[in-house]
Design a protein around this nucleic acid. Structure first.
Lengths: 251, 251
DNA sequence: ACTTTGGATATTGTATACAGTTATCCTCGA
DNA sequence: TCGAGGATAACTGTATACAATATCCAAAGT
C-alpha cells in the first residue's frame, strides 16, 4: 500500500482554520476535485464502496455531473491517501489491504500516537481533559442512540486527537489522521457487523483516566495496547473473512 | 505542511520492485504524469527549484512538451508527497518548511526509523551487514570523488533503508522514504553550502558498528541521536538563513 | 501623495474531443 | 466442446479549447 507525505500535509486541504477576527466567514469554495474526493472518501470509509470495487471515471463523472478531469484529480488524491489503488490504463479500485498491511498500519499508528501522547502529557491542562471528556460523553450518547458507524469513526478520531492536541505538532497530527483513515475503514467494517461498540468506549475511558494521573509510562502503555489489540483483532478478522470469500469463490 | 498516506503507498508509484525471477524485465511504461513528477521531484530535491519558487503549469508543460493535464496530475502527486504546496486558483510553490516543521519531520523520522531498526535487528544476517557496508563504501568513495549532493542523498537513503530492510515492513519503509525525501532536501541544501559530508559518513559507520554488536538499545540510541542532531542543526541553519533573507528584504 | 476602481493580462480550473490501451465477445476451425 | 484469432466496445490517457479567477497597472477621485 501507499502513503503520501502530503496526505499528511494534505490534511491542509481540509481548509486552513479561520485565523483572525473577521466577522463574516470566508465563502467556502472548493475545487470540484476536492469536493469529489470528499464524497468518495466518505463512501469508502462508510463501506458504501466495498474494498476491491472498481471506480470508473465515467460513472463517477456522471454521478456527480462533472467532467472526468476533476474526477481524475480526486482519484489521485485518494490514491495518495491510500484509500484506492490504481493500475495504469486499468483504472482504480478501492484498496484492499492484506492482513499484514493492516497489522503494519496499526503498528505504525501505535508508535506515532504513543509518541504524540508522550509529548502531549506534560502540556495537558484541565481544559484538555475536559475536552476529551466531552467527546467521550458524545461517544457514549451516540452509542445509546444507535448512531451509524460514520459517527463512531468521527468521534473516535476526535477523542484521540484531543489527547494529542497539547503536543502541538501539526505535521505529526496530520500524518496520524491519514493513518487513522486507513485503519478506521476496517474498524468500521468490523463494528458494522459485530456491533460491539462499547469496547472502544471503555478503552477510551481507561486511557483518559490514566492520563489524568499524569503517569506517562502507564498512559502510553495503555494506548499502545488499545491500538495494537485492535490491530491484531482486525488482522485476524480480515484474514478469516478473506478465507471464507475465496472459498466461496472456489466452490 | 502536508503528508499523505498514499505517499507512503505512492512510494509504490516508484514502480513495484521486481518480484520473482522473470528474465525479461517488464517494459517500463510510465504515464506522462509520473514522468513529469519524477523530473520535478529531482529538480526540487537537487535544489534546482528553490523553496518558495512558483511552479507555473504552462511553463512546465512547455518545458516538457506536454499539455497541462499531465502537469497538473504531477503537481498533485508532489503535493501529496509534501514537496510542493498549492493554493486554489493561485498555483503551486515549492514547499518552504518552517524551522518548526523541519524539527517535527526529523522527530517523526527518528521515532519511525528507530522502531524499524528495532524490528530489523533480530533478523539481521551477515549479508545484511555486508549490504550496508557496501553502500557505506560507495558513499565514502563518492566523497573522495567530490560527487554531487544528489548522489549523496541517494546513498544516504540506501544506507538507512539497508538497515531497515530486514524488518520486512513495506508500508513502514515507504512512509520513511517519503519523510526522508522531505528532509533530504534541506540536508542537501546544507551540505551544498558547508560541504562537510564526512560527518554523516562517520555517523553511519558508528551506527553500523553498534548494530553488529546486536545491542538493540545502543543501536537505536545511536540512530536516534544521528537523526535528531541533524534535525536540530538544520532547524537552526534554516532559521538563521531565513532571518538573513528577511533582513535583506527589509533594507 | 494615497487610495480606489476598472479593466487588461496572466494563470488556474473544467469541459469536450480525440488517441491509445485493454477487455469482451463473437466467429471460426479443430 | 474447446481454444485461437480478431473485430468491437469500453475505458483510460492526453491535447485542445473555453470559463473562472486572480494579478497587475493605470487612471480617477479624495
Amino acid at each position: 500500500m501507499d502513503l503520501y507525505i502530503n496526505d499528511m500535509i494534505t490534511a491542509s486541504r481540509t481548509r486552513p482554520v479561520l485565523s483572525g477576527v473577521r466577522r463574516t466567514a470566508p465563502i467556502e469554495r472548493q475545487s470540484l476535485a476536492d469536493a469529489v474526493a470528499e464524497r468518495l472518501r466518505e463512501q469508502i470509509l462508510n463501506g458504501d464502496l466495498h474494498e476491491g470495487e472498481q471506480l470508473r471515471q465515467d460513472a463517477i463523472a456522471k454521478q456527480f455531473e462533472v467532467s472526468r478531469i476533476p474526477v481524475r484529480e480526486a482519484l489521485l488524491l485518494l490514491e495518495a491517501e491510500g484509500l484506492i489503488t490504481t493500475v495504469a490504463n486499468r483504472g482504480a479500485v478501492v484498496s484492499a489491504l492484506s492482513p499484514e498491511e493492516i497489522e503494519e498500519l496499526f503498528d505504525i499508528r501505535a508508535v506515532l500516537e504513543c509518541h504524540a501522547l508522550r509529548l502531549a502529557m506534560p502540556n495537558m491542562a484541565n481544559e484538555d481533559f475536559a475536552q476529551a471528556e466531552k467527546v467521550l460523553k458524545e461517544y457514549e450518547l451516540a452509542l445509546d442512540k444507535n448512531a451509524d458507524v460514520a459517527t463512531w469513526g468521527e468521534l473516535n478520531w476526535r477523542f484521540h486527537s484531543a489527547l494529542y492536541a497539547p503536543a502541538n505538532r501539526p505535521a505529526l497530527m496530520a500524518l496520524m489522521k491519514v493513518l487513522n483513515n486507513n485503519c478506521d475503514r476496517y474498524t468500521r467494517l468490523h463494528l458494522a457487523i459485530t456491533r460491539n461498540l462499547h469496547r472502544a468506549g471503555k478503552a477510551h475511558r481507561a486511557i483518559l483516566n490514566v492520563c489524568k494521573t499524569r503517569n506517562v509510562e502507564k498512559a502510553t502503555e495503555e494506548l499502545h495496547r488499545h491500538i495494537t489489540e485492535a490491530g491484531q483483532y482486525l488482522k485476524e478478522f480480515i484474514r478469516k473473512r478473506r478465507e471464507e470469500h475465496t472459498q466461496a469463490a472456489h466452490k
